[in-house]
Amino acid sequence: MNARSQVFELSVEGRQINEAVLSIFHSILLHRSSGKFSYKREGSYTIGTVGMADVDCDFINLTYVRVDSDGLNRALKRLLSEFKDSLRGPEGLRSGQISLEFYQKKKARWPFGMENIPWEIWTVKLNVVTLANEHERQICREKVGEAIAEKIICIAGVMNRPEYVPKMPNLSEIANIFDVGFNDVQPYLHKFSYQASDEPSPSVGNTMKRLLLDTFSY
């Protein structure tokens, strides 16, 4: 199955990184989260309610909406701090990219167990710029806000297209489709990955080499 892919590019200042990525990922997760499922019996369930919260950005002229879920919010913030750490280089912050991948688990052929099959990938490429003075910073604040507003409208467009999303599962399969680890909402299964711009991407050769080394090390 081919996963849909969307790539957003932004030029931001170092201190805007967190808010820029959070605003985009929270907007995506708002659309890709549902209320918690409560199964009465197999095939019959009720769905909880998704709350929403407006968030004002400190370094960007923007207000975005996120799902009201402390767990999800914490997870995203933790991820963002890891991402930002990975961007730190000897000469300040480097550029990089971060992806949000929605996937579903499916049983693979013997002898393999479950495999994760991605169905939608959102990537945010960040070019970190350094600004000389407060005047530029002020303009950047507005411009990044405008750019993210565009992205949010784009997200709304993509979400409302009649395209593939995994079917509502039975009780036994709910964990193959949804992330049931949060106690208030239920987003589709997703994972994050990030990379600084000058890090070498893991090639097939490298991966194979590492696999072999790992095998022989036992």
Binding site: G35, T49, G51, M52, A53, D54, V67, D184
Partner: peptide
């Protein structure tokens, strides 16, 4: 605006 998520609505 802030509305609460309710798992058992």
């Amino acid at each position: 605006i802030h509305t609460k998520s309710k798992p058992n609505s």
